[in-house]
Design a protein around this nucleic acid. Structure first.
Length: 476
RNA sequence: GGUGCGGUAGCCAAGUGGUAAGGCCGGGCUCUGCAAAAGCCCCAUUCGUCGGUUCGAUUCCGACCCGCACCUCCA
């Protein structure tokens, strides 16, 4: 069953199938700018991209996933200087942090993770090609700009009106867009190479146009060409990148290589809201994974929450949503436990699928898989999973088929049940009260047991009795 | 103003030309010394508003209202 996905450029639902003869599906995702910790909005996009990649893999497609690291731009340079570190040292730290968070969120590592700094020669080569072909010009200060009017179909991705663009010299805030705007022939033109400025410090590279550094947009064009070729299957990013970043990438790449059809499919995911408001530093709602961990949420609960809405709709991220996710994950685990019992398996035997051959059983989870294949409908798939789980499997054989299907679905979603919960240290005094209460209960001293329960509750803990013992958890 | 997305129960959120998935919360019951957990059951005559097409529309068409995003910092 092919995976169907909405394409931004054609605005159509299209099947995702490898175009290359070797069957490899090339997927390029705009990665993070490593000047600080990524926030959950960034991770919504990366989690959705990861889910698409996993879904393609389960459908039997061999994916080559490329996600770049932007390690040179205004923010990284400024950050490095503020931290008193070299650019490389500064971005290495934040890249490591990003990888750590990705791992916690079960994001599969891309096959290739190119760095912009490591691809400066390729960027220079591409800029030189653009200059040679008349698509770029060198300004007096040694900066190089892309000549938007030289690209007749500029705007085809975002469907923007070109005449409107060329007259626009201020942004929505009414500010001039660039200090060097007078260097440009047209306000719509954008920088390919930025000439060296004093504030860049030691961060400049030689080029045929003098010392400087690459513009932001050219990075992705050069890296996708290097690792996927002049045309490839899918390009992904957040909606905000649609214009101008992706539009510029198309123009640069197609004009530099002379090959039309840069990316066959454009995949954009909607933004994340927090508690009903746009995320911003001033509102103080720019959560990182660490912020949420500190509030007691597990990365898996965060992943579930990030996936709980369709990728093309804005998602309102709330603490209530995390709470819902926790309950839902618990329900999933209980349902899976039932299935494993019927199948005669232990939890340890529930493993992610190592191969994703389409002929292996889906059991009753085929409808859930069909949802996922239909424009990556994750909420729909969640619904189907729970609907199926609410009915017991008929027998051992049926349960085993179900488990095969569910394992593949959960792999595609990147949901790992039975994750080890964070062990909360129980204070000795609480432990002591609990022991006393348990003893009192065994002795049928219910008055004493109730009194001890009250003390435990007052101390901020909850004692949960089982037949053969008890559990303690923080909170009322 | 331009472009795009969306308005479905208390909250989150799928979906369909034939009479509304699922999750959370809430309510009831069972179990339980109590409490919790768990299990079972219940929980939208209705899908922003108004028209149109139709035997039938939440689903198609039109208008309108409202919300959101992007329009050269942004996942």
């Amino acid at each position: 069953m092919p995976v169907l996905l909405h394409d931004t450029m054609s605005r159509e639902m299209r099947p995702l199938l490898p175009r290359r003869p070797d069957g490899v599906y090339g997927m390029y995702c705009c990665g993070p700018t490593v000047y600080g910790p990524a926030h959950i909005g960034n991770f919504r996009t990366f989690t959705i991209q990861d889910t698409l990649r996993r879904t393609l893999e389960v459908s039997g497609i061999h994916v080559r996933h490329v996600r770049n690291i932007t390690d040179v731009d205004d923010k990284t340079i400024r950050g490095a200087q503020a931290a008193g570190k070299s650019l490389a040292e500064f971005t290495k730290g934040w890249t490591d942090k990003f990888h750590h968070d990705c791992q916690a969120l079960e994001l599969l590592p891309p096959q290739v993770e190119p760095s912009a700094v490591a691809h400066i020669p390729q960027q220079i080569t591409m800029i030189a090609a653009l200059v040679a072909r008349g698509h770029a010009y060198v300004a007096k200060d040694g900066s190089v700009y892309f000549k938007v009017c030289s690209c007749p179909d500029y705007g085809k991705l975002s469907h923007l009106d070109r005449s409107n663009l060329s007259t626009q010299s201020t942004n929505s805030a009414g500010e001039a867009n660039d200090a060097d705007e007078y260097e440009r022939e047209s306000a719509a033109d954008f920088a390919l190479w930025k000439s060296r400025k004093p504030e860049d410090g030691p961060n400049f590279w030689p080029s045929p146009w003098g010392e400087g550094r690459p513009g932001w947009h050219i990075e992705c064009s050069a890296m996708s060409l290097e690792h996927l070729g002049a045309t490839f299957d899918l390009h992904a990013g957040g909606v905000d990148l649609c214009f101008p970043h992706h539009e510029n990438e198309i123009a640069q790449s197609e004009c530099a290589t002379g090959v039309k059809g840069f990316a066959a499919h454009w995949f954009h995911s909607a933004h994340l809201m927090v508690e009903g408001e746009k995320m911003s530093k001033s509102l103080g709602n720019l959560y990182t994974l660490d912020d949420l961990k500190a509030k007691g949420w597990s990365p898996m609960e965060v992943r579930w929450t990030l996936l709980s809405g369709h990728y093309r709709s804005p998602l309102n991220f709330t603490m209530k949503g995390l709470d819902d996710a926790r309950s839902a994950l618990g329900k999933l685990e209980r349902g899976l436990d039932n299935l494993l019992t019927t199948a005669g398996f232990t939890r340890a035997e529930f493993l992610p699928p190592t191969t994703h051959e389409t002929q292996t059983a889906w059991g009753r989870f085929l409808p859930a898989w069909e949802k996922l294949c239909d424009d990556l409908n994750v909420p729909g798939a969640f619904g189907e999973i729970f609907k199926t789980l609410s009915n017991p499997a008929k027998d051992l054989t049926a349960a085993r088929e179900d488990i095969s299907g569910l394992a593949k679905i959960l792999y595609a979603l990147g949901i790992t049940p039975f994750a080890v919960k964070a062990e909360v240290a129980i204070p000795a005094n609480i432990r002591e009260l609990a022991e006393k209460r348990w003893a009192a209960k065994q002795a049928k001293d219910f008055q004493g047991a109730d009194s001890l329960r009250n003390q435990i509750t007052a101390a901020g803990w909850t004692m949960l009795d089982r037949k053969d013992g008890y559990d303690l958890k923080p909170g009322a």
